[in-house]
Write a protein that binds this DNA or RNA. Structure first.
Lengths: 370, 370
DNA sequence: TTGTATGCGTTATCAA
DNA sequence: TTGATAACGCATACAA
């Protein structure tokens, strides 16, 4: 069942009609433009029919004489012809466009994935439409609409999890959807991300082995985001298994700095004098955490050890380096996009859930203590 | 005159024809898809003509009775209709797509600009096609082609400067082009970026005032990139003006780490015992620089002061913070995109060259020395 | 190996 | 206030 949104004006997603004045100007400008060259012009110049040119364009060389082929090629170059993807798409029901919806484009994780995804697209002759939602379900919804309007052939999404109805509708249509980092089992989509279970266990074990007795885990709100939940759960499980209470799991809202400060104060006073460590659930949290600790004058690792997920480029530079679990972000982007093309090429196998192993990178922020 | 590329196969930029096998599968899959709903379906459901629905879609409410309007709205929602932008674009010669070509999407500068650009696009009902060139002119060229094929309505580009012919052709057609960070006066395009002159002077002055006697400037290769050239020139000019030889301007290739190490060794031994500072020409160079200094065991600011451009999120966290000149990156993205829409709406004034002032942010890496 | 004719979904023109 | 129809540029079925 698709949720309805009453306040919904459909043309919010369409270009508004320009004022009459602008409109006229627009027309005038457009008249001035160099005559658009179409397949007909090429056909004329090459002395063949449109059909023949079309065959050339789609690489059906086996059906073309060498002479025709060279003449068409020459005509195309001479006229500076560019096939109109709008027309091709309309006719063939393919836009050669892939949508990518990310929660936060300024997060290095997202750009690294984007880079991998883009490389695959390029190889396949597709292009990426990139949308940034700021984790806002309303924005996400609007972007899904827009992308649908553009008839994207596939969608890579780092979803807020609040628009499952719309995503399902997309998929019903024809469009492969791949979830990045965040699972939604009920949607039955392919999913790509870190093996949070393994990565977290490994990190927690390492820290315990280094001799730390109290570990805090700081994460953004868990609600609705599977990767956060998986990491937090693995953290709690590992501690519990070893008989250590997993009390120090803190959810913080990064938009209100006090939130972090509060939790931090609590943990630091509570563990005064203990061998203690803090794990940040991702690169952004880690940045805020280190910033907060510096503000307080807390020494890393003297007063508290620190480790985190993602391996931002600056991790080696802070103090004697921050211990992290790195994700193969580029590879995640590549694999996600490959899933899309597999689906596009007819793969109808059940949804895959692809996990990549994280890699523990030990640096100075988590020295052994006795 | 447009340069020709002989090895040029046009369908490199088109989706290759799938094998016959894949093709059949594709067809079969497509048949399975939920019947696409078109404007005709909506018209039928609402009991009006396509024309009337089209009027509704483009917001020409003044030409619609209230009754018709509500019926159409209901039909659209009920059928889950999405206007086909491919068809709209083909008909109206507008794709509602803006291209954005960046040299390096993993550079935080690029994503910040992207974010600004995207916000404006969204407001206007446009979407962004994002392309990453890795500073490779060939890739850039291919992307320009692809974007042209998709009939983008505008282009934001951080150009390699090697494809001026192609860019000019784009502009000849009809498409507003705005250059970000890198100028190409001969192209006559609108240009947005930092006021490199002011920003650099301010930084250099500050460092000299702090008492440093020798200043090195480390930049990526200057050739063809105006922003690098402007900063380097301002650096040299400021020193010269004060009677200090500007010998220590180093161009390094970030792809070969030895390149940086070498220059660094040279400068550090040459200035042994002096009050000295190093300026990094952008955020990426700064990262590599700090990394190299740490590797050498050189203390910041004990052995050498450090400052740089861009203000990456990690700048406050390294040691007692790195002094930088921040750029209003988000604002740059917004302004660039606004230029595009102004042009689209008929502005035919001469090309504008918009400079934003940089903001010096003083931190611990450049303490006063006597 | 090549060409003719039709239609993809939409908007614009013209008429009512 | 509404509708019939043509056209946008291309790919395909079918014919030759």
């Amino acid at each position: 069942m698709i949720k309805r949104y009453d306040i919904f004006e459909w043309n919010r997603f369409l270009k508004p009609v320009p004022s009459m004045n602008e409109y006229r100007k627009g027309i005038m400008m457009r008249k001035k433009q160099t005559e658009k060259v179409t397949i007909t012009d090429v056909a004329k110049a090459a002395g063949v029919s449109k059909t023949t040119v079309s065959r050339y364009l789609s690489g059906q060389y086996h059906a073309l004489s060498d002479r025709t082929r060279t003449r068409i090629k020459a005509a195309i170059e001479q006229l500076n012809y560019r096939p109109n993807q709008l027309a091709r798409g309309l006719k063939g029901d393919r836009s050669y466009l892939i949508g990518m919806i990310v929660a936060d484009i300024t997060n290095p994780y997202s750009t690294a994935v984007l880079r991998g995804a883009e490389d695959v697209c390029k190889r396949k002759g597709y292009s990426l439409m990139v949308c940034n939602t700021d984790n806002d379900p309303a924005k996400e919804r609007e972007y899904i609409f827009t992308l649908q309007s553009h008839r994207i052939d596939g969608l890579l999404i780092n979803t807020t999890g609040q628009n499952n109805g719309f995503l399902r509708e997309l998929a019903n249509d024809r469009t492969p959807v791949v979830l990045v980092d965040r699972k939604m089992p009920e949607l039955g989509f392919d999913t790509i991300g870190l093996d949070n279970e393994q990565a977290t266990s490994e990190l927690v074990h390492f820290i315990l082995n280094q001799g730390y007795k109290r570990i805090a885990y700081i994460t953004e709100p868990l609600a609705g985001v599977s990767s956060r939940q998986e990491r937090a759960a693995a953290f709690a499980r590992e501690l519990t298994r070893l008989g250590i209470p997993a009390d120090d799991l803190y959810e913080v809202d990064l938009h209100s700095p006090e939130s972090l400060m509060e939790k931090l104060d609590h943990f630091l006073t509570d563990t005064e004098g203990d061998k203690r460590a803090i794990i940040a659930a991702n690169g952004v949290v880690m940045l805020k955490l280190i910033s907060a600790l510096q503000l307080k004058g807390v020494q890393i690792p003297g007063d508290v050890a620190v480790a985190g997920f993602d391996d931002p480029e600056w991790a080696p530079l802070i103090g004697s380096g921050i211990t992290t679990v790195a994700q193969p972000t580029y590879q995640i982007g590549v694999t996600a996009m490959e899933r899309i093309f597999n689906r596009l090429e007819g793969d109808t196998s059940p949804a895959q859930n692809i996990h990549f192993a994280g890699k523990l990178i030990v640096r100075g922020s988590t020295p052994a203590v006795d």
